[in-house]
Nucleic acid binder design. Structure first.
Lengths: 182, 182
DNA sequence: ACCTGAACACCGTTCAAGT
DNA sequence: ACCTGAACACCGTTCAAGT
């Protein structure tokens, strides 16, 4: 990549990070280009879709999560590993307003640039769940795709309650324990 | 109301119903006006916001739910009443694509024209939950607002899996039973 | 009292022209 | 090879003019 192109790329990433943090994942692309000091066409050249830009912004965080997932697979007890992982998913997916919704619509959409990230979360969740189920700590009938969707749905709900920072934790506890008395 | 105004009102409702069913709750308002055979200004006169139009479209269904809720409060067992109610909430909130999201953002927004509907669901859920908790069937620590949000989140998730009609039921079962073995 | 639709604002996306 | 920004499309919302 040419030196000026690389600099533009980096500037766009930085501007997008700010914009997503401030306005959510549907921040104006034109404003991002303006903040980065480039034309709107340059933004589209580097990032053909909003999701491509979002993916680039999230990339580091996704890599971190992936590594944490690998680590958790080697730790005990299995149930605690799973719970730690699910908390990490919620934390990540609430990073920007609108992110949980974007991820939800990418779960089954192979054409989305976020599909890879979703797939990683899906695979890691499946492994951690299977291990916890094998250890007898978690219901054997639970499907991992349902679990991940519910956890992402919790992230989405929590996103809309910025005044209630404990909400996600309470809802995750609800999911883990269930409504029914035992 | 003048006769022609009333007719326009009815036509707009009908056109909105079709549009929401086809394109989801963010269907084009201009197209709704065009389908109804009125100017866009007339739509705005009758329904100053998209939510006002949506509320009018949903009104009958909300009334039905309210009545069902009242009836369920008189039926036993309390746990089954609660479960039936939650299923009804999911069915209603998945009626149009985008509805669950619209309702979620109206839960704490008193200025939303959907706030009243949300409040009804909240109040009915609280009563049915309290009764089931008193009967000892449901965890006493669960907060009714969290429960309703999770159920709406399930509706939102299911909305994005049109090919999997059993998804909402599985996720509700997950919420009711919890992940952990007992 | 109610309706119409032009006008304005805003944003996403493409592409011809420029370096 | 890369960048720019005008141009086009589309939608929401307001409001002056009309009946």
């Amino acid at each position: 990549m040419r030196a000026d192109a690389r600099r533009n790329y980096e500037r766009l990433l930085e501007a997008a990070r700010e914009a997503f943090a401030g306005q959510g994942t549907d921040a104006s692309l034109e404003e991002i280009a303006k903040t980065a000091g480039v034309g709107i066409g340059t933004l589209y050249r580097h990032f053909p879709t909003r999701q491509a830009l979002l993916e680039a912004v999230l990339h580091e965080g996704i890599t971190d999560m992936d590594q944490q997932g690998e680590r958790l697979l080697g730790e005990s007890p299995a149930e605690e590993s799973l719970e730690t992982w699910l908390r990490a998913v919620i934390r990540h997916n609430t990073r920007y307003r609108g992110l949980a919704a974007e991820l939800m619509s990418s779960f089954d959409d192979e054409s989305s640039q976020l599909f890879g990230s979703c797939d990683m979360m899906r695979a890691t969740s499946a492994q951690l769940l299977a291990r916890a189920q094998h250890a007898g700590a978690i219901e054997s009938r639970v499907e991992s795709a349902d679990l991940l969707r519910m956890v992402n749905a919790i992230a989405w709900s929590a996103e809309q309650m910025p005044d209630d920072p404990g909400a996600a934790d309470r809802m995750l506890a609800l999911l883990l324990h269930g409504l029914r008395t035992r």
